[in-house]
Amino acid sequence: MPKRNIVVVGTSSGGVEALRTVVASLPADFQGSMFLVMHIGSGSLGLLPSILARVSAVPVISPSDGESVQPGRVYVAPPDRHLLLEPGQVCLSKGPKENWFRPAIDPLFRSAALAYGPRVVGVVLTGELDDGSAGLWTIKQVGGVAVVQDPLDALFPSMPRNAIHYTSVDYKVPLVEIGPLLGHLTTKDVELEGTLKMPEHLEIEVKIAKQDPAIEFDVRDLWEKSSYTCPECDGVLLKLKEGGLERYRCHTGHAYSTDTLLAAITEGVEESLWSAIRQIEERVLLLRHIAKHLKDQDDDRATEFLRHAEKAEEQSRRVREVVNQQEQSGLEGDTQ
């Protein structure tokens, strides 16, 4: 009988120390295969495997595309690649970003659910926003186990809190207990007969993460059109509903949770406001420059240009106030 020995872990802000704690506490005879995604930039040096290897009794590696899945290994997603699972092997993909990131957590979780069903244990650790919530929900739908770091124990509690909100988790535990818990869970047999049906369109979403063009599946006919555009490519976003979750994906393949989409739109608004400030202040400089050159030739016109410059300065000041209010609102939201 197969074991529940496929472990997928997702984290973001605060993730290095969290992963060090989890990996360091794995038993030396750990027989599961663990796959880790932490949000990192595309220009990262990819040092996480070596950092974790220093504290782990289990081999930690950065896998290559097509590498076989072995027990007693920890596989770490490399920079700028989604880490995905197929039966018996690893797939590295430069598919569309999800929730602003590549690697992202949800694609790993979904691919694990599709490839291994109830043999999967999904783990969500410290991080901001809610990447991993949709993927953990999918793991539960196929009969897998959901483990979440206790938000009160997390350096950044948003990801664990959202996972608990959207998914019926099996274990909510402090960080120091997760490693031993995973060692225990991966020794358990799992019954494959009579497992739950795969969520609708799961296979399509995994294929999109593997770089199969979303337009080939005509996703516009699969999901409801929304009123929003993709922050990355300006394509129309389609709305997906799963349980209590609402997500968005464009026909190019970029995907967002509601929280991540809101954050992306808010950032776009701020960028637009700063662009407006720049253009207004350039106008102020030009008006003053013109007034200076006209002063000796036509004092009345020079005065008029200076008056326009003063009005533009007032406009710039008001837009700056809006930016400051928005930034303050964001800071207050982060502390809640």
Rank of each mutant, 00 (worst) to 15 (best):
K292M: 06
V190T: 04
A104K: 09
T258H: 05
V284R: 03
G243F: 06
E246I: 14
G244F: 11
P103W: 00
V190R: 02
W274P: 11
P27W: 05
V90A: 07
R307I: 13
G132T: 10
P157G: 11
G333D: 09
A24L: 06
A209R: 07
A24E: 02
E282Q: 06
P87T: 12
F35P: 15
S12E: 12
D150Y: 00
A28N: 06
P63C: 03
L155Q: 14
I215P: 11
R119I: 11
Q325P: 03
G10Y: 01
S111I: 02
D153M: 01
S33F: 01
G194H: 03
T138K: 04
A309T: 03
E205H: 11
S93M: 05
V169I: 04
E17S: 15
S227W: 09
Y256C: 04
R73I: 09
V148Y: 00
V120R: 03
K197T: 15
R20M: 03
I215M: 14
A53H: 10
C250N: 11
P103C: 06
K295M: 07
S12P: 06
S25G: 11
G330I: 04
S257G: 09
W100P: 14
D150S: 01
S133G: 05
E281Q: 12
I204W: 01
S64E: 12
K3V: 08
I215V: 14
S133D: 00
E191I: 14
R4A: 01
G32K: 06
Y228I: 11
G243M: 11
P49F: 10
A24F: 00
V120I: 07
V90L: 05
D221L: 13
D296M: 11
L196V: 14
T266F: 03
L196R: 13
D298G: 13
D29A: 09
V173Q: 07
E304H: 12
E98A: 11
L285E: 09
R81K: 10
D106T: 04
Y75E: 12
T252P: 13
A312L: 02
F156L: 13
P96F: 05
S56M: 06
L114S: 11
L245V: 15
G333I: 04
V22K: 03
A263C: 09
A134L: 06
H82A: 14
L245C: 12
P180D: 00
K311Q: 06
R73P: 11
E270L: 15
F305H: 09
T266E: 05
Y116C: 07
T187K: 08
E17L: 14
E177H: 07
P27Y: 05
G194E: 02
V284T: 05
D189K: 01
Y228C: 12
V322Q: 00
C233H: 09
C230I: 14
V69D: 07
S272I: 12
A214S: 10
K241Q: 13
